[in-house]
Computed example of a mutant assay.
Amino acid sequence: MTQPVLDQAPASSAPTQGRRGGVLAVAGVAATGLAVGVLLAAVDPHEPGHYPTCPFLATTGLYCPGCGALRATHDLLHGDVVGALARNPLTVLAAPYLLLAFVTWALRRLGRPAPRSTSLPPWAIWSLLALVVGFGVLRNLPGFAFLSPA
C-alpha cells in the first residue's frame, strides 16, 4: 500500500512563482519609469528651483556629459527633438537604445521571445566611453559653446 505524499506543492508552482516575479519586476520598473516620466513632463526643469543642480557643475563650474539631460528628456516628452538636441544630444541618441534595452529585458523576464542580444562588443563599449568623455571635454572648451546645455 502506498502512502500519500502530503505537503508537496504542485509541480507547476515553481514556474508560476518565477513568472509572477518577472511580471512584478517588469511592472515595477515600468511603473517607476512612467511616474518619473510624468513628473518630468509636468515639472519643467527649464525653470530654476525645481530640480537640484548637477553636483559636478556645482563643484567645478564645468558641464558634465549628463548636464542638460533632464531638460532634454523633458523636451523629448513634449515632442521637441530640436530642443532636446540643443540641451544634450547624447540623451537623444541614448533614448532609443535604452528603450530597446528595457523592452528586451522585459520580454526575457516574462519568458517571451526577445531580440537576439542588446549587448555590445568591448570595442563598442570603449568607443562609447571615449565619445562620452570627449563630449564632456568639448562642451567646456571655447568654440564649442553650441554643445553647452545652457
Rank of each mutant, 00 (worst) to 15 (best):
P142H: 13
G111F: 03
P52F: 05
A145Y: 09
A95C: 06
L85M: 11
L128R: 01
W123P: 05
W126G: 07
L40W: 01
N140P: 01
T60V: 07
L99F: 13
A14E: 12
L93V: 08
R20K: 10
V133Q: 06
L107T: 03
W126Q: 06
A27P: 04
L70V: 03
A25D: 04
V5K: 13
C54L: 06
G21K: 11
T32S: 14
S127A: 15
N140Y: 01
F102H: 02
F146S: 12
P15Q: 12
Q8A: 15
A14I: 12
A95D: 01
V133R: 04
R71V: 01
L34Y: 14
T53H: 07
A130K: 10
G49R: 07
L34P: 05
V103P: 01
G49V: 07
L128K: 01
T118N: 03
L24C: 12
L147D: 00
G134Q: 12
G136C: 13
A130P: 06
H74P: 01
C64F: 07
D44W: 00
A31D: 08
R139M: 02
A42L: 15
P52N: 09
L62W: 13
N140V: 02
A35T: 15
L141C: 08
A25K: 06
L6Q: 12
G33W: 03
P15A: 11
A95K: 00
Y63P: 00
Q17T: 12
V132C: 02
Y51I: 02
R87L: 05
P52D: 05
G61T: 07
F56E: 05
S127G: 15
L98T: 01
T16R: 15
A41Y: 09
L128Y: 09
I125C: 05
A41L: 05
F102I: 00
S117M: 03
F146M: 14
A69S: 15
P52K: 11
H74C: 04
P142F: 10
F144H: 05
L131W: 07
V36P: 00
A42I: 05
T60C: 07
L39R: 10
R112K: 10
T73V: 03
S12C: 07
